[in-house]
Design a protein around this nucleic acid. Structure first.
Length: 277
DNA sequence: TCCCAGGCTCTCT
DNA sequence: AGAGAGCATGGG
């Protein structure tokens, strides 16, 4: 996407394109990023990062060259041409208006297990509280690393009981988290294989987990497997689609449905889109 | 305070 | 198959 410079304390993305830190890291797709004095701090794939803008560049502080190639290019979806996607969908005037506001979001390719777990927690919940539960999960059961705690593995959670999760204060979702961990750690649900399946088949496989329905499965596949044809429908999207695209998603957006879904989701929330059902 | 939150399961028709 | 209640908890 851009020229990359390796610097002493991190990586510099020269003239970072279609990459708003705020829109990408705080649009409800990932829950472990926080802003402080203009910089964004977070932990992903067991590593701690600080990101900030330097003019038109983005600095990924804490990333070495090897991790950049092995982890961060994929995590930040840096090889995808978002300009081309925005151009393609802008043939529709509503999508153009939406992407004018949200087209600097990049879809993060998160760890599959973390995405699964995060979106199990997200059900019938609000974003601030989702973040709190996930942080408590990491503090209680993750590994201490420089800068915080890693997201705990499925194996670690599988060794726990519902009662052990009480400190998370996640309510009825605790039993779902335990079920997911046991099935993933035990191999009954093979996340690696699921990421290789087609989207519909993969969703079916994920829904063998208690508490995983179509929406949680779709989010897991979009944000945890990079399946950009996966289209999560939550209350915001359902209402936004009724108001904006009652005849369905425009044809030009179908190949990128998942990405466009995130644009619409963010747009709906930014504009506090009002609906009369 | 009271409504509702990036839904899903269970039950009843 | 489809509709509706209930769910834990706490943010706004």
């Amino acid at each position: 996407m851009t020229e990359v410079k390796i610097e002493t304390n991190g990586i510099r993305l020269k003239n970072a394109n279609r990459f708003s830190l705020a829109d990408t890291l705080d649009c409800g797709q990932a829950f472990r990023w926080r802003e402080e004095n203009g910089a964004w701090y977070g932990i992903a794939h067991g590593k701690s990062l600080k990101l900030y803008n330097d003019g038109s560049d983005i600095i990924i502080e804490g990333a070495c060259a090897k991790d950049y190639d092995d982890i961060w290019v994929r995590y930040f979806d840096l090889n995808r041409d978002y300009d081309a996607i925005v151009a393609a969908i802008s043939d529709n005037s509503k999508l153009k208006e939406i992407s004018d506001m949200t087209g600097n979001i990049r879809i993060l390719r998160q760890d599959t297990w973390e995405a699964l777990c995060s979106f199990i927690i997200s059900q019938n919940n609000n974003i601030p509280r989702i973040k709190g539960i996930i942080e408590r999960m990491c503090e209680n059961f993750g590994d201490k690393i420089d800068g915080g705690y890693s997201f705990p593995s499925a194996q670690r959670i599988a060794a726990l009981t519902v009662d052990d999760l009480a400190p998370l204060r996640c309510g009825f979702r605790a039993k779902y988290i335990i079920d997911a961990a046991k099935k993933v750690a035990g191999g009954e649900v093979d996340l690696g294989a699921i990421c290789d399946m087609d989207t519909a088949e993969a969703a079916e496989a994920l829904m063998k987990i208690k508490g995983v329905g179509p929406k949680v499965a779709a989010c897991t596949l979009l944000f945890g497997c990079g399946k950009i044809d996966s289209f999560p429908v939550d209350v915001w999207i359902r209402r936004a689609m009724q108001v904006l695209f009652s005849d369905g998603l425009p044809e030009s957006a179908v190949p990128y449905a998942g990405i466009v879904q995130q644009y619409i989701f963010h747009y709906a929330r930014l504009t506090k889109l009002e609906f009369d059902e």
